[in-house]
Design a protein around this nucleic acid. Sequence first.
DNA 1: AACCATCGTGCACAGATGTGCACGCCAGGG
DNA 2: CCCTGGCGTGCACATCTGTGCACGATGGTT
Lengths: 320, 320
Amino acid sequence: MREDDAYRAATMYYLQDQTMEVIAKTLGVSRSTVSRLIKSAREEGVVRISVRQPSGSGTNIGHRLSATFGIKTHVVPVREHATELHRLEQVAMVAARLLTEWATPQMVLGVAWGTTVTAISRHLAPTPVRGSSVVQLNGAASTAAGGVTYAGDLIASFARAFDSTPYLFPVPAFFDFAETKAAMWRERSVRRVLDVQRHVDLALFGVGAVAADVPSHVYNAGYLDDAEMAQLTADRVVGDVCTVFLREDGSYRDIAINARATGPSPGDLRQLARRVCVAVGEAKVPALLGALRARVATDLIIDETTARSLLDRLRGSVRP
Amino acid sequence: MREDDAYRAATMYYLQDQTMEVIAKTLGVSRSTVSRLIKSAREEGVVRISVRQPSGSGTNIGHRLSATFGIKTHVVPVREHATELHRLEQVAMVAARLLTEWATPQMVLGVAWGTTVTAISRHLAPTPVRGSSVVQLNGAASTAAGGVTYAGDLIASFARAFDSTPYLFPVPAFFDFAETKAAMWRERSVRRVLDVQRHVDLALFGVGAVAADVPSHVYNAGYLDDAEMAQLTADRVVGDVCTVFLREDGSYRDIAINARATGPSPGDLRQLARRVCVAVGEAKVPALLGALRARVATDLIIDETTARSLLDRLRGSVRP
DNA sequence: AACCATCGTGCACAGATGTGCACGCCAGGG
DNA sequence: CCCTGGCGTGCACATCTGTGCACGATGGTT
């Protein structure tokens, strides 16, 4: 009843360009109610709005990035002086919209966890996708409490939005011993999830930066001890993708801790058709550069300011 | 430049929920300009808004029609006392939006001509569709002047909207002699168009009603002489689809004039995957009933008032 | 039965949006 | 050279839209 009214109101508003006043009279409710109906229609995914990039947008930032790394880039316009938190919110909104736009029946969506992905999850409008699954890409349990429920809620919120089957990955972010990982990887319960991960059609992840203003989750939630942090610095690690650490040049294979990490390596990721990387914040630029050089992404969603920083660093002219 | 600004403004407005004031400051223009940029983004097809029908809308008119005729129905909400012209405009708007939503690469769009289809053409937002074609379904030349350019403009406006190759059908609406039709149908120039028509993926047409308040084009533009009109009445013809005449029970094969008509018969239409019928006006109900019984449509776009009328007539309780 | 929490609604106001008008810029033509 | 028509812009106003608040209905609990 209510949903049907929302549908009727949305049709009249968006498809027939009627004012809410007129719609209110037709439906026999107050204008305020119509406003709320239309809002709920948007939030419930009854209304979908997409914006397509005009083909001939010439020399702008997005196209430069796309050309350099051979990826599709979505640059989110933001005001110059906008705070990083504000920008994160903007980018997350756009990412959430694009994601629902890219959803296809039977899709397997792989999601990592972190501040960025969590922000995206807050902006997802419900978009039922027949036969879809959502799978957690990397383990989240840590010595500190809360990692599992945190990641669990995150996956659940994606699964709810797409009406998908959720697959959790109940392993720690890092094993203490590489042998344990090897052992667990032989367990059928784990293998089942790994198998789903290999069939991911659309992977979604952010990048972690070791030195960030809004510090990335991994480096602050008790996942790593002091010795490990020191080792990262010694290894010239600048950040991570799916809790696999990277250097700015994109190398990662010889970083010891990665043998104990549970997320897919850049090499694993590259097997997947579509890999969407979302990044906000100048501090993430070195890590992002490493990620792009490791070719982890096919799509990049980034705010204008960070994008500019990235291009600057590429040219070698690092700004203060 | 302008288009790029429109894209940025539209992104910020629709995807990031920014106010125009904020967008104006970011882009360095006045708020009014932003309003206009966003409007143009909508009109130029940069922004697409679609409204999906909630699955569980139970006993409403649309579902009753869908169940009765085995078609998909889109009922356009209108105010009860709305004029027929107003309703036509509403329905045409919705039809235009749905059409762009249904457009797929390589599609062949078949369009008839008439008041309804013309109204739709006025509301089409440009939506480039790779490799698409638009083909005229029925001839339009008449003894009175203007038929050809009229249909030509119509087809051209569809072709422009979808960036398609247009195929005109340069034959009269009705031949005077069935033999001429047979002869023309052997001509290669005509056969080429007929061949495109057979590959139509999406056919769009209205229904003509012999006795309409807003009279249908065929019966008023000099296509038929008095004797022919009298013959139609004698044959219990209630209207036409693509200038092929029908009775209310859906029969059409034994109506003499149809042998001289150039549009696809219901039987021809049924070969096409998707056939979208658009209808407005109580006067069209008998003709529409005939059309639906002849199974010419897979999709029906109709206003609420006409839909109600249609259901009433189905139940035998014709209202005054 | 009384109570309370929750929810949906309309009212009224604040804020956001659309648009007629006038101004200024530019290009083409006299 | 000026004139003129077309176009894009900002201003100011009218209209449209979003939302805090209060009220009333509903349903469950004590």
